[in-house]
């Protein structure tokens, strides 16, 4: 029993002297997987400039980003889905745009098609054209790949490309941007979409209505997401500092994030 008392007294002394006190502060970011590579690099830079702070960055999707930050379970939510009351309740989130993240339509290399009209793309994604031959390609069944409902890129594709239509329910669901790319690379006949500012390897990046994506003309590419950083109104100064830092790094284009949108 004596040793236990001694241990308690020793811990109390150490604590009061500050030896055991933890001065570091931890911030959390949750949300869109497409921005994760950039955020991980940028966060490391912010941590280096702010000793004592650590930041964890995790995915989960754009919707999860909004839900988690509005409920106070994350300090910053990353999302390319517009907030609405179902997702964020009555919390009036503040935000900063990271920039434009192009959404590219990709297909397996052997489909024999490199250019589609928007109408053809719509028919393929909605499951109305089921063979690549129908759009001038090889005789290969179309296998549509999509993202979960929580994905911001899916929302943008359905809103901007399908004009409110839905991706076929027979589509195969890839949980992340990376999983989508890998699935399209490996699956003959696959058609999918990824958020990327670079031309992905081992897939055919499709031109739409004659417009060809290239990192040098990324500003003209018509399909893009705008990932934003969201925080609660009562967030600390360090959270706002982190958001501002992340939204202003010059090397964002290296990660496919172009032309900051105000």
């Amino acid at each position: 029993m004596t040793w236990l008392m001694g241990l308690i007294v020793a811990l109390a002394c150490l604590s009061s002297s500050g030896v055991l006190s933890v001065r570091s502060q931890h911030l959390t970011m949750v949300g869109a997987t497409s921005a994760l590579p950039y955020l991980r690099r940028a966060v490391a830079g912010w941590e280096a400039e702010h000793p004592g702070y650590t930041v964890s960055v995790s995915g989960g999707g754009s919707v999860a980003g909004l839900i988690e930050v509005s409920r106070g379970r994350a300090d910053i939510g990353v999302s390319d889905v517009r907030p609405n009351q179902v997702l964020t309740g009555k919390v009036d989130l503040q935000s900063l745009a990271l920039g434009r993240l192009p959404i590219l339509f990709i297909a397996h290399l052997a489909v024999g098609v490199r250019n589609l009209s928007r109408a053809q793309l719509q028919r393929l994604l909605m499951g109305q054209s089921t063979n690549w031959k129908a759009v001038g390609g090889t005789h290969t069944p179309v296998i549509v790949m999509t993202r979960p409902l929580a994905s911001g890129s899916l929302e943008i594709v359905q809103h901007e490309v399908l004009r409110g239509g839905r991706v076929t329910p027979r589509a195969i669901v890839a949980l992340s941007n990376g999983a989508m790319l890998a699935a399209v690379q490996e699956t003959p006949g696959a058609l999918g979409f990824v958020e990327s500012g670079n031309i992905p390897a081992k897939v055919a990046v499709l031109a739409v209505d004659g417009q060809v994506f290239h990192p040098h003309n990324a500003g003209q590419w018509p399909f893009y997401a705008v990932p934003r950083l969201y925080w609660r109104p009562q967030a600390s100064a360090s959270v706002k500092s982190l958001a501002l830092y992340l939204a202003t790094r010059e090397y964002r284009p290296q990660y496919g994030i172009f032309d900051r949108v105000s």
């Binding site: 989960g60 999707g61 919707v63 999860a64 839900i67 409920r71 179902v86 997702l87 979960p148 409902l149 929580a150 329910p169 027979r170 589509a171 195969i172 669901v173 890839a174 949980l175």
Partner: peptide, 30 residues
């Protein structure tokens, strides 16, 4: 499994199970 949300037409069709669908959609429904 593929995560397809319609009734599968055969053993080689994509599909989803109760647990995989909970995982896929849990983040969209607060």
């Amino acid at each position: 499994i593929g995560g397809q949300t319609v009734l599968p037409t055969g053993l080689t069709s994509p599909g989803a199970t109760l647990t995989t669908q909970i995982l896929t959609d849990m983040s969209i429904f607060p």
